[in-house]
C-alpha cells in the first residue's frame, strides 16, 4: 500500500513546476520533502493529496491512480494539514476537532477528542474559542483534527496517510519536537507520513526518506545521510553548505557554517 509517483509532471500557467518525478513513499516511514523556496515542495504535496492533476505521469495509492478517486474516497485514506488554516466563524476548539472526527464514524468521539487534545498539548482547551488561540495553538488544533481523520493508522482497507505541509512552522522548539514525535508514532503504528519541512536539522533527525527537490526536479532521494551531502545541498540551495555530523547521530547543519566552505 505505498504511494508512488511515476514520471510525475505538473505545470501551472504554462510554467513547469514538477518535472518527471519518480519515487515511492512507504507506510511505516516518514518521507520528508526538502528544497529551496519555489522548488515545488508544496505543489508536490498538493498533487499527492489529490488537489492538483498532473499533466503527465501518475500518482498511485496501493496501485490505484488517485486521479480516479472521489473526495470522500481520498478522505478515507489520507488527511492533509495545510500551512495555514483560517476558521471563518467563531467555532470552539472542540467543534474544529469534531470536523475531523466526523469524517470517520468513530465509536467514541468524546474519548478520542480528549486524547488527541492531550497529545498535542492542548489538554482542557476544548471549549476555548479557536480565534482566541495563538498561532502555534491553532496549528496544533489543526494537527489534532487531521490526526482524528486518520485514526487508527491502519484500517482493514490498509494503512492511512498523514500529509503535513510545514507542520512546525509557527511552533517553538518543544512543540516542534512534540509534533514530529506524534508523526513518528503514527508511522510506527503502521501509517505513512509525508511532510514538507524547512528545518533541515529536524529533517535529518526524523526522516526515513528524504526527497530533495530543486527547480521542480528530484535531485536526490534516500536516507538523510545519503541525500544531505555537502555537494547536493550546495547545488540545491545554490549556496556553499557544509553538513556536519554530531556524534552517534545523523547529519546536522549550522547556519553559522553556511558559506564557510
Amino acid at each position: 500500500m505505498t504511494i508512488e509517483a511515476h514520471n510525475l509532471t505538473l505545470a501551472r500557467d504554462g510554467r513547469t513546476i514538477l518535472a518527471g518525478l519518480d519515487f515511492t513513499a512507504a507506510p511505516g516511514q516518514i518521507t520528508v520533502l526538502i528544497g529551496p523556496n519555489g522548488s515545488g515542495k508544496t505543489t508536490l504535496l498538493s498533487a499527492l493529496a489529490g488537489d492538483l492533476r498532473p499533466q503527465s505521469g501518475r500518482i498511485t495509492l496501493g496501485g490505484t491512480d488517485i486521479a480516479g478517486l472521489s473526495a470522500p474516497a481520498l478522505a478515507a485514506r489520507r488527511a492533509v494539514l495545510a500551512q495555514e488554516t483560517q476558521v471563518a466563524f467563531p467555532f470552539t476548539v472542540a467543534e474544529v476537532l469534531r470536523l475531523g472526527i466526523e469524517t470517520r464514524s468513530h465509536p467514541s468521539g468524546a474519548a478520542l477528542m480528549s486524547r488527541l487534545l492531550a497529545e498535542v498539548d492542548l489538554h482542557g482547551m476544548a471549549d476555548r474559542p479557536y480565534h482566541a488561540l495563538s498561532g502555534g495553538e491553532r496549528q496544533r488544533v489543526q494537527l489534532a483534527r487531521v490526526l482524528a481523520q486518520v485514526h487508527p493508522a491502519v484500517t482493514p482497507q490498509g494503512p492511512l496517510w498523514l500529509m503535513l505541509d510545514e507542520p512546525v512552522s509557527s511552533l517553538d522548539i518543544g512543540h516542534q519536537l512534540l509534533v514530529m514525535d506524534r508523526a513518528r508514532r503514527f508511522a510506527a503504528a503502521g501509517g505513512g507520513v509525508i511532510a514538507v519541512l524547512h528545518d533541515l536539522n529536524l529533517t535529518a533527525m526524523v526522516a526515513d526518506q528524504v526527497l530533495l527537490l530543486a527547480d521542480g526536479a528530484l535531485l536526490a532521494k534516500g536516507r538523510p545521510a545519503g541525500v544531505m551531502t555537502d555537494a547536493r545541498m550546495s547545488q540545491a540551495y545554490r549556496w556553499p553548505i557544509r553538513m556536519n555530523r554530531a556524534p552517534d547521530s545523523g547529519p546536522f547543519l549550522l547556519p553559522q557554517m553556511a558559506g564557510a566552505a
Binding site: 473526495a71 478515507a76 488527511a79 483560517q86
Partner: peptide, 15 residues
C-alpha cells in the same frame, strides 16, 4: 467543513 476553507473541506471528503 467549508468554514476551514475549500481545500480543507475537500481534504475532509466534502464534494
Amino acid at each position: 467543513a467549508l468554514t476551514l476553507g475549500e481545500a480543507q473541506a475537500t481534504h475532509m471528503g466534502i464534494p
